[in-house]
Amino acid sequence: MDFELRKLSVTDGQDIYDMLQEIPKAENGFINGGHGCTQEEFRQWLARQDAASRGEGLADWMVPSTTYWLYVDGYPVGFAKLRHHLTDRLREDGGNIGYAIRPGQRNKGYGTILLSKVLDEARLMRLGQVLVTVWPGNQGSINVALKNNGTITRSTEDRHYIWITC
């Protein structure tokens, strides 16, 4: 199998659009802003995500973030967002990395591969550690973070805080 991590592009096409329609709009705390969009809204969403990677057009609580697609043998199976740094708010509610796999491609190890490849990108950004926050009932995502050498450093009723050294 060939695994490829691609950075979001404003020219991304129908394959990405279709994947975003399959991944729920909000699931386990991860927000898929491309879900439910028309084609025109999808184009606008891509442009906003591209701008966000450069820190442009962000709300006051947001930080620059880059979106990546995971392709397996040329087919997009999931995506991740990597925040370039954390604020106090994001240390409590959000973390550095969020990810999702399209429902028909889950339980195949793709989440673990996706997070591993995004961690490589975090290293290139010279991030020493990244935080992944996971809802307690999301055992699959907890396992993905732990398989990538994550350590649960704190747990609350709402989430586990998993730090991963880059």
Rank of each mutant, 00 (worst) to 15 (best):
A100S: 15
I101H: 01
I142W: 00
G78W: 01
E27K: 05
E40S: 11
F42Q: 05
D15F: 11
L146G: 03
P76I: 07
D2W: 09
F79K: 09
F30M: 10
D18F: 08
L86Y: 05
R123D: 06
N28S: 10
I16K: 07
Q129F: 09
N148M: 00
L8R: 08
T112L: 00
W69Y: 13
H35S: 14
L5N: 09
T66Y: 03
L8M: 13
R126V: 02
V63L: 11
K147W: 01
A59W: 09
C37R: 10
P64K: 09
L70R: 03
N28I: 00
G13Q: 14
W45S: 08
R102K: 10
A59L: 13
L58I: 07
I101T: 07
V130P: 01
D73N: 15
G34A: 00
Y17W: 09
P76V: 11
E92S: 15
G111L: 01
L115R: 03
G95T: 06
T133H: 04
S9T: 15
W69Q: 11
T156A: 08
N148S: 06
G78L: 07
Y68H: 07
P24F: 11
T133P: 01
D18W: 03
K7E: 14
D158A: 15
R48L: 12
E22F: 02
L119A: 03
P24C: 12
V134H: 02
S53K: 06
N138K: 00
G29E: 09
R159H: 09
W163M: 04
V130H: 00
R91C: 10
T87W: 12
E27S: 08
I16N: 06
R123L: 04
A51W: 05
L90R: 10
G74M: 04
L124C: 05
R106Y: 02
W61A: 01
Q21K: 11
D18Y: 08
I101S: 05
I152N: 01
Y99T: 03
S141R: 01
G109R: 04
D93P: 03
D12L: 09
R89G: 06
G140Q: 01
R102D: 00
G36P: 00
D88Q: 10
E121G: 01
Y75F: 12
F3H: 03
S9M: 13
S141D: 00
Q105F: 12
R106N: 04
T87N: 08
A47M: 14
A59Y: 12
S141T: 04
N148Q: 02
G150W: 04
G74V: 04
R48D: 12
C37E: 07
G13L: 13
S155M: 12
H160D: 03
D158V: 11
L119S: 05
K147V: 01
A80F: 00
R106I: 05
K81S: 10
V144R: 02
T67E: 11
F79R: 12
Q105T: 07
V63M: 10
P24T: 11
I164Y: 03
G150E: 00
A26Q: 12
N32I: 07
D12A: 15
E27R: 07
